[in-house]
Structures are given as C-alpha cells and as structure tokens.
Simulated assay, not measured.
Amino acid sequence: MSQHTIVFDLETVPCTETLARLHRREALTDVEAVEILGEKFPKLPLHKVAVLAALIAERIDGVWKIQSLGAPHIGDRTEVDLISAFAARVDSLRPTLVTFNGNGFDMPVLRYRAMVNGIAAPGLTSRPYFKRYDQAHVDLCDELASFQSNAKASLDDLCKMMGLPGKPEGIDGSKVWEHVRAGHIQECANYGETDVVNTYRVWLRYELFRGAITEEWSAPMG
C-alpha cells in the first residue's frame, strides 16, 4: 500500500492584466502597476503564479521517499500551464497537501487564479483541500500554532530553531517581482524549491511528534 504527499509553495508577482481589468484600463506597464499598488500587498486574485514549487513524496511500507522535486516557472510555461499541470497531478494522486501558510495564501491564490484564467481544475476539489480543519491539507503554520495567530512562527525561524537550514540569503517573497522583472526567474524557482524542502523537513518532524513515523524514518530528506 502506498500513499502520497505533495508539499508545495507559490511564488507570485502582481498580474498587470488583471489589475488593468480591475481599473478598467486597456493595459498597464509594470511601472504603472507599481504606481497603483504602492506599498500595499495586492489582493489575492491579483497575484499571478510565477513559480509553483512542489515536492512529491510517497510512503511505501511506512517509509517516506521523495519521488520528485521541481519548481516550474513562467519563464518556461504559462501560468495556465502551471496551474493546470499541478491540478492534474493532484487529481491523479489524491495526496495529502502540505504547505506553510497555505490556508492564508497559496490555496486561495490557486483557486482565484484558476477562476480568473478560466481553468477547469477539479483536482483541487477532489478532496476537501479548502476545508480549514481537514487533514487533506495540512497547513503547518496553522496546525503547529493550534490556529492561534499569536502562536505562529515563521518557517525560517522554525527551521533554524530545529537545527535545520533556513531560507537562503538575498531573496524572499517580497523580492520575487523585482527578480522576475530583472530576468532572474530561475533564482525565484530555486528559492521556491528551498521553501518546499524546508516545509517537508518540518512536516517530517511533525509526523515524528504525532507518532506517524519513527525516528529512524524522520531524516530531513526522507
């Protein structure tokens, strides 16, 4: 018997096309979009998926093994392709989804962007992934804090406190648009991969805590 888990993370940029429609404009340049958005965090439907990093692990006879790790991005594919391929993979595996702050960001962004782009993505509703307290989707940020905002820790801090590698220096989610506009999309993809590996490592510690795996099988990379 086998089962699957997909750990995923989105890196996003403001979508100038959606922003233009919102403001009843024919089109907007990046400069005009910056002027409209200012320092505000864009509304979630305005977040275009630039990178969709994912790690797929399979459990066979009680042992988790990584089957694939990647971070496809809009430098090679369209946003529609990224979302469609991910939803199809979820549909085929019916996995447990694991995120860090996925309830607050990644999951609603995926749903909004699928709808904005007119994508059929039934895989994302093949299990109750959008139901906050269902274990089909484990948002570690929420889960570890018992869904209390004052108990939350950042992924970077949590990794470091556990003695695990944290986030790389020089880039974070707030700098993704800057990197994409400068033509450095691969750096953003590498950052996304780092996030899913970090999230996977924390999830293994959580599985060990729950008694779902033994210490023998809780090595950081499965």
Rank of each mutant, 00 (worst) to 15 (best):
M1T: 07
S2L: 02
Q3S: 14
I6D: 01
T12A: 11
T12R: 09
P14I: 12
C15E: 04
T18W: 08
L19H: 09
E26T: 15
E26H: 15
T29Q: 09
D30R: 13
V31G: 09
V31C: 04
E32R: 03
E32S: 03
L37W: 08
L37K: 06
F41L: 07
K43L: 14
P45E: 09
P45G: 10
P45N: 10
L46W: 03
H47E: 13
K48V: 02
A50R: 08
V51P: 03
A53H: 10
A54T: 13
L55F: 07
L55G: 07
I56N: 07
E58V: 13
I66G: 02
I66T: 10
Q67L: 12
L69S: 13
A71G: 01
I74T: 12
D76C: 09
R77K: 14
R77M: 15
T78F: 10
E79R: 00
E79L: 02
E79G: 00
V80K: 14
D81W: 01
L82R: 08
I83M: 05
F86H: 01
V90K: 02
L93V: 02
R94W: 08
P95R: 07
P95Q: 05
T96H: 02
L97D: 03
L97P: 00
F100L: 03
F100K: 02
G102Q: 10
N103R: 13
F105C: 02
V109I: 08
L110N: 07
R111C: 03
A114D: 06
M115W: 13
M115R: 15
N117P: 06
G118A: 12
I119M: 12
P122T: 09
L124D: 10
S126M: 06
Y133F: 13
D134G: 06
H137T: 01
L140G: 01
C141A: 07
C141W: 04
C141S: 09
C141L: 11
L144N: 03
A145S: 15
S146R: 14
S146A: 15
Q148M: 11
Q148I: 09
N150M: 00
A153I: 11
L155V: 11
D157F: 11
L158Y: 05
K160S: 06
L164E: 06
P165C: 10
G166K: 04
P168G: 03
G173H: 10
G173C: 07
W177F: 12
W177K: 08
E178T: 14
E178K: 14
H184V: 02
I185W: 01
I185H: 00
Q186E: 15
E187K: 11
E187N: 05
A189F: 04
Y191I: 05
Y191T: 05
E193W: 02
E193H: 03
T194A: 14
D195F: 01
D195Y: 06
D195N: 06
V196R: 03
V196L: 03
V196Y: 05
T199R: 01
Y200F: 15
Y200S: 12
L204P: 10
R205M: 10
F209H: 11
I213E: 01
T214K: 09
E215F: 11
A219V: 12
P220Q: 05
G222C: 04
